[in-house]
């Protein structure tokens, strides 16, 4: 169940019955690969590769299109799977493939999209018409604001500013007091609390809530009749003492 609906959210499909192999760049050296092989695809490939010992291989190709070289092969078992892959060379072009490999050959089952991982450093290549000005690069001690909440969307994360770190094993106690002054007067009479006119309900009742500070507090309460001919005053005195 979720807080936004009376109905439980049904689970998501674990497989879609469609073939795909996708590669996404996580950072300079890591990519995330996910795939789905369909039974039909595998069956068809096995017919073409009638070997007893076949295995599925996730292949990493490195280099631009037309100049690709095999970086590594890894055996996979899942038809629907995922894998994080470490790529030692940053700033290069990669593509993934899944093959069915047997003793007599290999059948290509899936090819992924091409990705280019970021270089992760200032380039050594220069455009001599636009030669870099060294002095302008002296103010980049860190390339980006690592370990800072430099990301946006602060509305749903902890503010980067001044959040109180939890103190270990500190027993907390905070006590506040409030005073509710309530009562009733003749309907239409004017009520004053500490000299200030206060509203009453049509039946003459009233209720006010005050933060009660430490020490002695005096609340002169005065009513004046509608005609102004009569007055009445009561003075509650409340003392708050915290030990």
């Amino acid at each position: 169940m979720n807080p936004h609906s009376a109905l439980p959210i049904p689970p998501l499909p674990s497989a879609y019955g469609l073939p795909y192999l996708v590669c996404l760049v996580k950072n300079v050296n890591w990519v995330y690969v996910f795939w789905e092989l369909t039974p039909e695809q595998l069956q068809h490939a096995r017919v073409q590769l009638p070997s007893q010992n076949v295995r599925k291989v996730l292949r990493v190709l490195q280099g631009p299109i037309g100049q690709q070289q095999i970086l590594l092969d890894m055996t996979i078992t899942d038809d629907v799977g995922e894998q994080y892959i470490y790529l030692p060379q940053s700033g290069d072009c990669y593509q993934m493939e899944i093959l069915l490999v047997g003793e007599t050959g290999a059948i290509l089952l899936l090819s992924s999209n091409f990705v280019i991982t970021p270089f992760g450093q200032v380039s050594s290549s220069e455009d001599y018409q636009w030669a870099a000005i060294e002095e302008l690069y002296q103010h980049f001690p860190t390339p980006f604001m690592q370990n800072q909440a430099s990301s946006p969307q602060l509305w749903h994360i902890s503010s980067p500013m001044g959040k109180i770190p939890p103190t270990k094993e500190e027993l907390e106690l905070e006590v506040n007091t409030e005073l509710i002054l309530y009562g009733r007067t003749t309907p239409g009479a004017v009520l004053f609390i500490q000299g200030e006119a206060m509203p009453t309900k049509p039946d003459g009742s009233f209720s006010f809530r005050y933060a009660l500070p430490e020490g002695c507090s005096i609340f002169p309460i005065k009513v004046v009749s509608r005609s102004g001919a009569q007055t009445k005053t009561l003075v509650p005195m409340i003392t708050r003492e915290t030990y």
Partner: peptide, 18 residues
Amino acid sequence: LDTHGVTYSRPRPRYATY
């Protein structure tokens, strides 16, 4: 872009982020 999106460009930008 964030700083490094520009300073890590190829070739190196003449004016950094300025």
